[in-house]
Design a protein around this nucleic acid. Sequence first.
DNA 1: TTCTCTACTGTGAACGCTCACAGAAGCATG
DNA 2: CATGCTTCTGTGAGCGTTCACAGTAGAGAA
Lengths: 343, 343
Amino acid sequence: MTMTNAGGRRRPPTIHDVAREAGVSRGTVSRVLNGGHYVSPAAQEAVNAAIRRTGYVVNRHARSLITGRSDSIGFLLTEPQERFFEDPNFNVLLRGCTQALAGHDIPLLLMLAGTEDERRRITRYITAGHVDGVLLVSSHSGDPVAEQLREAGVPLVACGKPIGLGSKVSYVAADDRDGARDMVKHLVSLGRRRIGMVTGPLDTPGGVERLAGYREVLAEAGIEADDRLVASGDYSRASGEAGAEQLLDRAPDMDAVFVASDLMAQGVLAALHKAGRRVPEDVAVGGFDDSPAATAVTPALTTIRQPWDRISNEMVRVLLAQIGGDDPAAVILPTELVRRDST
Amino acid sequence: MTMTNAGGRRRPPTIHDVAREAGVSRGTVSRVLNGGHYVSPAAQEAVNAAIRRTGYVVNRHARSLITGRSDSIGFLLTEPQERFFEDPNFNVLLRGCTQALAGHDIPLLLMLAGTEDERRRITRYITAGHVDGVLLVSSHSGDPVAEQLREAGVPLVACGKPIGLGSKVSYVAADDRDGARDMVKHLVSLGRRRIGMVTGPLDTPGGVERLAGYREVLAEAGIEADDRLVASGDYSRASGEAGAEQLLDRAPDMDAVFVASDLMAQGVLAALHKAGRRVPEDVAVGGFDDSPAATAVTPALTTIRQPWDRISNEMVRVLLAQIGGDDPAAVILPTELVRRDST
DNA sequence: TTCTCTACTGTGAACGCTCACAGAAGCATG
DNA sequence: CATGCTTCTGTGAGCGTTCACAGTAGAGAA
C-alpha cells in the first residue's frame, strides 16, 4: 500500500526526480535548465522529455538562495499617488512593463511608497536584495527612496528624467521638449499668434521641458513672450480648468492653448465651453499624452503621442542590461503629433 | 589585511551573524523572528538589539525553501485587458490590494494573462507554488485559468461573483442588484416613468445583477417593462454612446436612463447632447461606479458608489484566511447612492 | 532526595538548487 | 605511448533558513 499521494497536495517534483527519470545526474539537469552548454544532445533530449513527463517547474527559492539573484524586479511608485492613479498613462506603463518582463519570465512586484512607513519598508525590502532591480516612477526632485536605492547600488531605471539624482541612474523618457515644439509649431502653422500654455508641475523635468519647447518655438517664430499667457498646472483635470480660467481672464484675446496633458485639456475644454468660446474656431487646443481622455471629449483632442509601449520596453531592456553589468544609460524616444478636431 | 568589504557590495548579515552578535543560537533568533514564543525577555531584547545593529533582514528565499510558503500573492487579471485598463476602478482596486498586503509585509505580484502563452506561463507559475494565493479579477464565465487554479487547490478570491466556478472559490463583491435598485428607485421617485437602461456585459454577474435590479424596481413600481428601453453595452464609453443612440431611436419618449457604468454614462451624455436633449431636464442620467469620470463630465453624474477600499481590504482578508485554512467565503458589500447634477 | 513539569536554548538535518571540481572519454599531437 | 585539449558528466558542498529533537535549569510535588 503506497502512500505517494494520500489525500493532500502532491509534493512537486524536484530536480532530483527529473534526473532519476532521465537517467542522468542533477548537474546535467541543471545545465539543461540554464542554457544547455556542455550537454550532449542525447542528454538534452532525455532531460527535456523527463521535464515534460514530470511537469517539473524549477523552485525559484532554492535557485535564488544560491545564486543571490531574486529573478524578480520591483515597480516602484513614489509619486504623489493620486496624480498617477488618475492618469491612464500609468496603466499603460505598468502593463507594458509587466508584459515585457513576463517575456523574460521575471515577475513584477508592485510597490507603492505612499506613507513614511511604506517608504521604510520598501527601502529595506529592496536593499535586502529581494528584487534585482527597480523600475521607478518618480520624476519629482529630491526623492529620498530613490536616493537611498541609488546609494545602495540597486540597479534603477526611472521613467522620465529624474531631477537631482546623479548620472548613476538610468532613465527612459519621451522627448518632451521636442513634442512640445511640434505642437506649438503646429499651432503657429495654423496662423495662431496668441498662444497660451497650461504647464505641468514645474518640479518635474517633463513639466519644465514642455514649457521650454513652447517658449523656444514662440521665440523662433518671432512671437513675443507674454507671461499672462502661461498658467501652471499639475496634470490634473481640475488644474487644467483653473488654468484656462486664469488665462481667459488675463488674456481674453488668446486664440490657442497648448496644454501639457490631456487630462488638463479636458478641464480646459470645459472652461472654454463655459466661457462661450468655440473650439477650435475661437481657440485651438493642443494636448499632450494621447491618453484615452483625448478621444473621450468633444471635440477630440489634437495631442502629442508618447510612445508608452516603447518606453516600457526600453525601461525593461535598460534595467536588465544594468543588472547584467552594463553602465547606466539614458534613452530618449521621439513623440508624434496626432491631429484631431480641437485644432 | 582583511577583505571584509573590498570594493563590491557587502554580503548581507545572516541569522548566524545576528546570533553571534546577540550571544545566542540561530534557533533563538529564529524564534524571535517568528512570534517570540518560548523566548526569555532577556534573549528577546538581545536579539532585537543585534538585529538593529546589524541591519539584518530575513532572507525570504531561504525561509520559503523550507516552509514551502512563498509569502507572496498574485494579482491576476484575465479579463479582456482593455476593458479594465481603461477603467479607473481597476486602479483603485489594485492600489487597495497592494496596500492591504503591504500591511502584512506580503509583496504583490502583478500577472496579466492576455495571450494564450501568458496564460500558460502564469498557470504554471502559480500552480508551482510560487505564490500562496491569488486575487482574481475575472468575472466572466468559463475562465480557463481560474478553473485550473481552482482544480489545483490554489487559494483564490475573485473580485465580483464568478460565473461557472463552484462554491470552492471565495469572492468579494459590491451589492450590484441593490445598487441598481437604489438608482432606479431614485429615478422613479423623481417622477420618471420611461426609464431606459444601458446594461453592462451580460456574461458577467455584475451586468446581470444590475439589469435584474432595474427590472425588479420597475415591476414593483407598476411600470410596464419595455424591451425597447434596454440596450446592451460592455462598460466602455463607446458602447454607452451607441446604446444611448439606440434607445433614443427606439424610444424617443425616454425621460431617464440608468447606465451600468460611469464610463458608459460619459458616452450617453455625449449622445444625449448631440440629440439636443437636456440633462437632467429632458432625460435624467444615473451612472454606476462613482469613478473619477463621474465628476469629470458636465453635468456631474449621479451614480452608485462601490466601496472599493473595503472591497480590496476584504479580498485580502478573505484570501489570507483561506491560506490559513479557512473555508471559502462570499462577502457582499453595500453600495451608496451619490446624488449630483445629472438627475 | 527524586521525580515531573514548564520554560527556555542549542544542534543537526533538511529544503532544492547551483557551482566548483574532479574525472572520464574521445581525439589529435608530440 | 604519453600528453594535452575539448567535451561531457557526476559528486559533494553549501546557500540561509526552519523544524524536530535533545537538552538544561529551575520550580514545585511526592
